[in-house]
Nucleic acid binder design. Structure first.
Lengths: 342, 342
DNA sequence: CTGAAAGCGCTAACAC
DNA sequence: GTGTTAGCGCTTTCAG
């Protein structure tokens, strides 16, 4: 397999080696490699044999260079440490995107941005021609990654819908409508003092969920009952619930802006001796694995994470084929799932 | 920024454009690009200006081709769907590896293998010269990915220690010792009928944990009390516990081979009316975010996931520098963390 | 210190 | 059908 150099390191066989071995020219080898027609059966056979014999495997860097494409697309996750670990949706999105790309024989490369340094390196990496397009998950408004990708003119699709992505393709859920609906249902269980733990307001999802909450409550909305926290995390859920409880002990309903947040809230409520759903009703958002693990199981808004990933991947592929990026975006359904927590 | 072609698509500026703009040769541009000495200050200044003016950004495919290296290393996760989503350790390993690579200015690319098709494509991708080395997470014995990487002679480091990786570098924890220790402590709480939910026996971690359990119990070990399940998952934990309960209703201690498994077991025990830790003591393994969310919080074995990722990354980097792959492997400490579940 | 030229491994005209 | 020949964009001798 492969030639062996004096230094002992295996040197990889090239098209040229295959050509000599098969007694044909490089052009012909290239043709069979790319499945083009107009190659005699004997030539094809000789080449196949030669490929196997010398252990040839094409060098993608060379191919990318000449083709100006790499058959790889990136999925960028821009998250602070903890969230990436805690948020089960990201995993589902990843798997969905991978499935769709796999069908089209594209390689998915998941790139994580976890520091300013990462962002800079990532920008350089993306502009290097080793990635044909990107799926961007959880971008924030004014995200430097968004800018870099736009500057590069790289085919892209967003999961979610930050307001500043212009005409770029995106696939999202209607966070506002989902939040509105579940809040309405929570209110319908007879609660009168409904609060919200509002996380990630620097993201479209976060601010939209808050907006939906306000919509639903209308003039019964009381700003005192909204606690803002930075992340969609379990610990921020705990902190938010503690603050709410202290400020408004008469609270009898809580919309947590994610299931992880709800889980934190639930645990704080239990410690405070409140019974859910009798004393206070709690609802979440995401329908992630947290929801079923809660006690009682969480009423929440279902998020089709896997399908979000698939659709985003398809949007990037469409752009790569030169098709119109599906006129902006797609919005997927996010039905309420009613369980025992409210 | 960049030249504009007639078709409207931006064509990227090349070294040549920079050279003409700056009135020097391509060689000189390349020198400043790579921070080499022996370039006059004026030339350097002119080139820097030209780079900014034409919006030059180096093409990595071209650079990779000539340098035979890409400054990117892959992290391969070979998992069935569900697990990737449920296992918080993978996220931490990823983040740790990313941190270490980031310091060395390498790009981490996370590659997921979720089907046979993925595996084949991955093998081709890895051999393409776009990836300089790999970190392999959760490989199984006889894993095709392991074979492919070995055939390629790609610098690699494993997280975990499948028996069939030969001399390859790895970083692992002593699963057997950890399991032995926590089982011993569980027994010391006065339990006499201790069972185990043993998952992932096709992986070194899974079989080692079982071995440690057997070690600890010595002649008090009863094969009847071991239930084998496929994955380290919540649902397999539930299934395992149900089976155990039915077969041996007198069970009073359970070693679950991961925290997720333990969480499932806990919920089944609760539904069955057993009080933890009074009626039955439960311990897990991993010290992941599941552990704290359990009620009562789980006694478990701490796994330094972040550090596993970091160390694996460093091992690959060392190989890339031509240093000896640190004589096989490193084994990290995994202390028992005692909480309320036993 | 700098320019010219060769070549990394592959594909794509264009001849024959 | 197949060989030949230009490059893709970059680094790197080797002269000067």
């Amino acid at each position: 397999m492969g030639r062996v150099e004096t230094n002992g390191r295996r040197k990889r066989a090239t098209v040229k080696d295959v050509a000599t071995e098969a007694g044909v020219s490089r052009g012909t080898v290239s043709r069979v490699l790319n499945g083009q027609p107009y190659v005699s059966d004997e030539a094809r056979a000789a080449i196949d044999a030669a490929i196997a014999k010398v252990g040839f495997v094409p060098n993608r860097a060379a191919r990318s260079l000449v083709m100006q494409s790499s058959q790889a697309i990136g999925l960028i996750v821009h998250e602070p440490h903890s969230l990436f670990v805690e948020d089960p949706n990201i995993g589902s999105i990843l798997l969905g995107a991978n499935a769709a790309l796999s069908d089209a024989d594209y390689q998915l490369s998941c790139l994580i941005a976890d520091s300013q340094r990462d962002i800079d390196r990532l920008a350089r990496y993306l502009s290097g021609g080793l990635i044909d397009g990107v799926i961007i998950v959880s971008a924030r408004v004014g995200d430097p990654i968004t800018r870099a990708v736009a500057d590069l003119g790289l085919p892209a699709a967003f999961v979610g819908h930050p307001r500043d992505i212009g005409e770029a393709a995106y696939v999202a859920i209607d966070n506002r409508a989902g939040a509105r609906e579940i809040t309405t249902r929570l209110a319908a269980t007879g609660r009168s003092r409904i609060g919200m733990i509002a996380a990630a307001l620097d993201r479209d999802s976060g601010s939209d969920r808050l907006a939906g909450f306000v919509d639903a409550l209308g003039n019964r909305f009381d700003p005192q009952l909204v606690e803002r926290v930075p992340f969609y995390s379990y610990s921020d859920g705990q902190a938010g619930m503690r603050a709410l409880l202290q400020r408004s002990p008469d609270i009898d309903g809580v919309f947590a802006s994610s299931d992880a947040v709800a889980a934190g809230a639930l645990d704080v409520l239990r410690d405070a001796g409140r019974v859910v759903p009798d004393d206070v009703g709690v609802v979440g958002f995401d329908d992630s694995s947290w929801a079923l693990r809660c006690d009682p199981p969480l009423s929440t808004v279902h998020q089709p994470a896997d399908e979000l990933g698939r659709a985003a991947a398809r949007a990037v592929l469409a752009q790569l084929r030169g098709e119109d990026p599906q006129a902006g975006g797609r919005v997927l359904e996010c039905p309420v799932v009613w369980r025992g927590s409210a």
